[in-house]
Design a protein around this nucleic acid. Sequence first.
DNA 1: AACTGTGAAGTGTTTCACAGCG
DNA 2: CGCTGTGAAACACTTCACAGTT
Lengths: 259, 259
Amino acid sequence: MATGRTHRPATRSRGIPEATVARLPLYLRALTALSERSVPTVSSEELAAAAGVNSAKLRKDFSYLGSYGTRGVGYDVEYLVYQISRELGLTQDWPVVIVGIGNLGAALANYGGFASRGFRVAALIDADPGMAGKPVAGIPVQHTDELEKIIQDDGVSIGVIATPAGAAQQVCDRLVAAGVTSILNFAPTVLNVPEGVDVRKVDLSIELQILAFHEQRKAGEEAAGDAGVAPPVAARKQQHATGSAEQGPDGDVPAVMPA
Amino acid sequence: MATGRTHRPATRSRGIPEATVARLPLYLRALTALSERSVPTVSSEELAAAAGVNSAKLRKDFSYLGSYGTRGVGYDVEYLVYQISRELGLTQDWPVVIVGIGNLGAALANYGGFASRGFRVAALIDADPGMAGKPVAGIPVQHTDELEKIIQDDGVSIGVIATPAGAAQQVCDRLVAAGVTSILNFAPTVLNVPEGVDVRKVDLSIELQILAFHEQRKAGEEAAGDAGVAPPVAARKQQHATGSAEQGPDGDVPAVMPA
DNA sequence: AACTGTGAAGTGTTTCACAGCG
DNA sequence: CGCTGTGAAACACTTCACAGTT
């Protein structure tokens, strides 16, 4: 979705897998903790444990960055912190605007981990004129009217949307028009953005629903009899291939989830 | 990747892929919106657009649930809402506790999408005695001492951790000991949980770092010359250089990690 | 001896493309 | 004809297992 293809001309294409990129911050956090304890080196096994992954995956991930370890020894903590930071672009300053200073926006503004990496809250923006000027986390809230000006003046390229769902797309459009090219969306809506703009979303309700799915599986083993309400409309259709062939061609090995 | 093999006797093995499960809430939201507009049926193409995925993926996803569409026509909205809700376990009531009622916890307690699905905030818990009794989102905050009692009395199986990082593991241990088997973690820490307990994490700082990575790519195409500080220690090593496919569409990386 | 780096195999996910049904 | 449902191909990611290095 969002990102669309980026048909890069393959400038020597480093090509770090997306899954690896998503784990780099995890490694970085673990490494930072080690660094604070002045641990000089760490093995893939130890670091993997601290980051909650397995060591093969970690080594594979690092192999995309380069050969930064020493066989028989492990990885130099400081050096790796630097390399990962650089890879993630955290050696530079990223001004960020947060739009929508309700409960959540305020929480985000106060969030420490925010500033701790290269991120700097450049501005807090809210549509409520009554909020204008009020300081949140030490930063005065500004009115939406200022949005374009702020973004241009500060060279903001990352925006955080913490507005109600109804306002999100509109805010998004304005952010993008003003030059923002990466958006972190907390509103429960699918955002439409032009090619070249990245959107990541964080959705509490979705996370809970996924947990509920697994939770349900744990509880009800056999009893398929569901206690909920009855299907609303339409005739009930049969439930997919009942006992028959269907999936596992050869060695069964049923998928992740059992039933 | 959930719980590796789950031994289970393969009761007709439904086996819905994790990636599909993660998208069901998205479909459900889009369908709910259609339902509110009294749209009777929808094609895979339309629904996919509303959910921000492509139609082939959507059809494949639905095929894991069963044959719920009508060829030449599309899907019955109400019927599909029900089927997905049931699959996700939302036709039942899920009491949830939120631990850590700071800025973020309060935001979560107030979050509407919470209650809108089967989730019910059974209790708000905080370690600060000064907060005890204070109502947040209409619910009085209770002290951590009550944690075990609340969970057992209300049969809570899902816990949300919104405490500072330092307290998270301890809270997690208590939640698990009291009977919680699914945890949504907002604290920037890796939680250790016993086998059978699901943890999903939401980490603002990680999301931003991933955006920064892509942002950096957009900006500096060729100029590998980084303006940041110089590497701290150790000799620089060469850069690997895999030549190959690069980046693809955004794909969300699921994060269930059992243990 | 200890540990990294990585091909190769295994597993999961997406996309294609079209048969099949209403 | 239109649209779903799905094998098969393509792609992505993870894990294995061991060669290679210090």
